[in-house]
């Protein structure tokens, strides 16, 4: 298990390999579709060198109740520009992202998979630090969280390797053999 602390440095990111298990402590910012569009149309300094978490949490009276990852594929279209513009160092989500993102990660950042639906477990490792754009609604607002020993798996590394791509290729062979 590799321990990571934010702010992540380039060398922290470059030493990670697809398949590595990590625990992260420090600060992450939640962002979904609308927040991504916002960060590309306006300046959002908090995203500089940040860890972005694809998550729309349940927050009640300032406490994190339930906060697992959302499907990352929807954010693929925004992500190369997000990494280029803000130097985002890591993205936490589920389901993986496309080849344009794999290319944008090269030498710069990693994609980490969390288990979808394991939302109570993750919530217990998270505290709210602040919130931006609350008017977007609870799921779409950008929540800044303090996290402690948040577990994840490196599934797309900064060296062009993607476990999602491997499963896609292997399952494609099986699929073609069955039709």
């Amino acid at each position: 298990m590799i321990e990571l602390k934010t702010p992540l440095k380039k060398e922290d990111v470059l030493k990670l390999k697809a398949g590595d298990k990590v625990v992260i402590s420090g600060t992450v910012i939640s962002a979904r579709d609308k927040a991504h569009a916002f960060m590309l149309s306006e300046d959002f300094p908090k995203a500089k060198d940040a860890v972005i978490y694809h998550c729309g949490p349940v927050i009640k009276d300032g406490s994190v109740i339930s906060a697992g990852p959302t499907t990352s594929a929807r954010m693929s279209q925004y992500t190369p520009e997000l990494i280029g513009r803000y130097g985002v160092k890591a993205i936490i989500g589920k389901g993986g992202m496309d080849d344009s993102v794999l290319c944008a990660l090269k030498g710069r950042a990693v994609y980490l998979s969390a288990t979808g639906g394991a939302a109570v477990t993750y919530a217990q490792a998270m505290k709210v630090k602040s919130v931006s754009k609350e008017e977007f609604g609870m799921p779409e607002a950008m929540w800044e969280f303090e996290i402690r020993n948040f577990p994840a798996i490196v599934t797309m590394d900064a060296h062009g390797k993607s476990l999602h791509k491997k499963v896609l290729e292997d399952s494609g062979k099986s699929f073609r053999g069955m039709i």
Binding site: C55, V58, I65, S66, A67, G68, T70, G117, A119, V120
Partner: peptide
């Protein structure tokens, strides 16, 4: 804990 399994 009687909390929603998934945030969604």
């Amino acid at each position: 804990l009687s909390r929603p399994m998934c945030q969604d």
